[in-house]
């Protein structure tokens, strides 16, 4: 076990990479990653200056019209973008030494793992913090204080508003990654999480 995986260390001693993907659809086997947005949380602060965003060029399937309406990335937009393999190397280099921070993690992780298999990359298996799970945890805590509290929305926009953060309706990988990082800071504060184990 490497040093950073020690779950007892203080939460702000770890780097979190908030990450969001825009994809051509919802099926990790057939759909492709179109763009990646990443924002780090280091020493408890979102480091906006260290953000990353890129479109991804990958062979094969293009967006279904439905998905196109959501993220508005046209097939031509990705033509001059870095290749999937390059992007994965870049992303994995970062999350290898950090904690991955995702809103509704299972989907994005399945996409990343499927892409890793396609280009024969090793999946770095980082520790993952899922803001949707933290929402569930906060809800349980609220129930202890007050029976039948109002449910917390699980969508990114709804959850942010429920926690008093500015509304958000971006569907852009970088904007969503930032929205996730901010939501994480708010949830961390409400849960009074001190160590990594309080968050994973």
């Amino acid at each position: 076990m490497r040093w950073w995986t020690d779950r007892r260390q203080p939460w702000d001693g770890v780097t979190f990479w908030a990450l969001d993907l825009e994809t051509t659809g919802l099926d990790p086997q057939h759909d492709r990653i179109l763009s990646v947005g990443m924002v780090p949380v280091r020493e408890g602060l979102i480091r906006w200056g260290d953000r990353h965003y890129t479109l991804v060029r990958s062979p094969g399937k293009t967006s279904e019209s439905g998905a196109l309406g959501v993220h508005q990335i046209l097939p031509g937009d990705t033509a001059s973008a870095p290749k999937e393999e390059e992007v994965l190397t870049f992303v994995f280099d970062r999350i290898d030494n950090a904690v991955l921070l995702v809103h509704h993690a299972p989907i994005d992780i399945r996409f990343l793992r499927a892409a890793a298999r396609r280009v024969h990359h090793r999946w770095p298996a980082p520790r993952v913090v899922d803001t949707v799970r933290l929402l569930g945890r906060l809800e349980l805590r609220m129930e202890r204080l007050e029976p039948y509290p109002p449910a917390l929305p699980r969508g990114l926009d709804g959850a942010r508003k429920a926690l008093g953060l500015p509304g958000h309706c971006a569907h852009h990988a970088l904007a969503d990654a930032l929205a996730t990082a901010e939501l994480f800071l708010a949830l961390r504060n409400r849960l009074d999480a001190r160590t990594l184990s309080d968050l994973t």
């Binding site: 965003y53 890129t54 870095p82 971006a170 569907h171 970088l174």
Partner: peptide, 15 residues
């Protein structure tokens, strides 16, 4: 040396 352009996000941001 990264292939990733981090400033692109700002210009391309929709909404």
């Amino acid at each position: 040396d990264s292939p990733i352009d981090h400033s692109a996000g700002v210009e391309n941001a929709p909404g």
